[in-house]
Design a protein around this nucleic acid. Sequence first.
DNA 1: ATCCCGGATCGAATCGATTCGATCGAATCG
DNA 2: CGATTCGATCGAATCGATTCGATCCGGGAT
Lengths: 353, 353
Amino acid sequence: MSDPANPRPTLAGVAARAGVSASTASLVFSGAGPVAEATRTRVLEAAAALGYAGPDPTARSLRRGRTGVIGVVTEDRLGDAFRDPINLALLDGLGEELADEGFGLLVLPWAPDSGVDLSAVPMDAAILLGCSADLAHSVEVLQRRRLPLVAIEAPPLAGVVAIDLDNADATRRGAELLRELGHRRVALVTLPLDLGRTRAPLTPAREQEATAFTAMERIRGARAVFPDAGGVSAGGSTVAEGYLAGRALLDVPPADRPTAIVAQSDLLAAGVIRAAEELGIAVPAELSVLGFDGVRLDGITPYALTTLVQPAVEKGRAAGRAVREALAGRTPVPVSFASELRAGTTAAPPPTF
Amino acid sequence: MSDPANPRPTLAGVAARAGVSASTASLVFSGAGPVAEATRTRVLEAAAALGYAGPDPTARSLRRGRTGVIGVVTEDRLGDAFRDPINLALLDGLGEELADEGFGLLVLPWAPDSGVDLSAVPMDAAILLGCSADLAHSVEVLQRRRLPLVAIEAPPLAGVVAIDLDNADATRRGAELLRELGHRRVALVTLPLDLGRTRAPLTPAREQEATAFTAMERIRGARAVFPDAGGVSAGGSTVAEGYLAGRALLDVPPADRPTAIVAQSDLLAAGVIRAAEELGIAVPAELSVLGFDGVRLDGITPYALTTLVQPAVEKGRAAGRAVREALAGRTPVPVSFASELRAGTTAAPPPTF
DNA sequence: ATCCCGGATCGAATCGATTCGATCGAATCG
DNA sequence: CGATTCGATCGAATCGATTCGATCCGGGAT
């Protein structure tokens, strides 16, 4: 890589060879300021001759105080973060507003003990994606660095621009639909409650200690309608986890079985449905299933899921825009998005006894 | 953001306040070199008092010549790149070797006219992911920057470490299975042939101009067994695209219909199967379908796909390792992976007339 | 002929750290 | 007791650009 005989050319070298000062050469590459056509050509020729690839991004970043990199902090493993289509939609939105504008997106799978040290990552701003309360410490570090911070569905944090979703209210409306249909025994399948991602029945103690904001908000919404609803927490937002949760809730004597399940993501809902099918429980005749997200399940389940459709791409765009606003020195306004209940074919009145 | 009355603290400021030189303060944060316990404490206290978040990553990068960022260049839109589970598996592998080691992954959705200027992105190395020949120019830019380059399944490029897959040979083995089963009329559903992602029948002209390496290699492998095989190119690796391709190939008079379809990804295969189901064509009795990748389809299709399983996570790990080798000053060895034919339930002898 | 203006260029300061070699005092060794 | 060594600290150079203010020069206005 590093060849002593042939060091990497620098702006200074190019300038020397072109017979101009470094400042003038800089102007040629940055485009700022007037440069005579002849000079410009001479500099570019010198650059070509030396194999100069343009100003060093790192040096430029230091001087300009901008790296062009936006961090996206998630609490999942790298691949898992994008395994749920809802996050892909969000990424699409971010891409439109940031990647297309020349910003690079730096994915930072954060964990309490992971190798990533958020204080040492070169970036201009950070987007916190589905982050739990555990991240609070890291938020402080980032704030000390004076980085603009945008959080997507996080507990309110001072100085962090919030991009929110009506998680509680939307779930409440979904639950109300179920109640109006006549359901009384409803169970929840929640997203992971904390970084441990424990797959286990909900208990007051576990809910007390939960750190995942979105999961708790959605639980809150469901309880507004069904105060006593129990359920289980899944180990992630996947069909497989939904299936496991479904088995746990449905493989019981029919009298104990819920007549409806409120799942906190469409993938979980799809897994629940699969569990029901396997146990010979008809959906929606014997079991209603409510999802969340409104992603295209694209054949993962033959049903049209009754679900709460959230504007995920919009959410991503809003986050991207907020970042750009902040970088432009303006104060971004927090945005709240609303989900819409989409009546599918997986909710119906409970079976009559 | 920038508060004139309260400028962001620097190492120099901390050092001054602690009554030591900047060099000593630097040692405290970098851990290199011996520092007396009392001094260390004093510096850390000063840092805390000033709200210093640690050495500025940009300045550190300039001085050290390392940013800790690895670019991952794809030719897809941000979200699309990760919509195919095969890439997620790859990401998992990359994550293990890079993210877990403290490197950040910078996703760069490259397109000829996109905002991303690869010459201006701060990074230590780049991984080229499923890149077509169109990227050649950008590769030059990156090489001028003397960045270590690792390409996953790309045409051989001088100075670029290749992580390869037996695309042609694997497809050939899959095709041979079909021939042994008795198939003679076989059609292909390929990945996009170029950046245009045109959805259209394969023609010699289009294949001539194709720039997508993997797609062409797999076509080559199929043609080794079925020299006259025609087919269509899809607009992406998705179930929806596979469905469209399937309709195009299958919605014809039975006599013209292929008895087997070689799809270049599992998602495409799943789409083909869906099209077949919809047209009342039984799989595998009336139509055999071969996939590629061996990803968990998790209920996207009820069949166990007959497919070529590629070690995707391993591929990612190898690429990550290659990057680390290169950054350590060693010369990474190119790696070639082999796919394995997995007999599923979607390939059978052709219908007898 | 004088004055002024603006385009082109340059010098020097700066961004915020890291690191090499030098210095200095105290402890160890023969 | 002098020489040596080691640990702790510091000064200065460096990484590679950007940018502000100053300078120089030719041409149009007066």
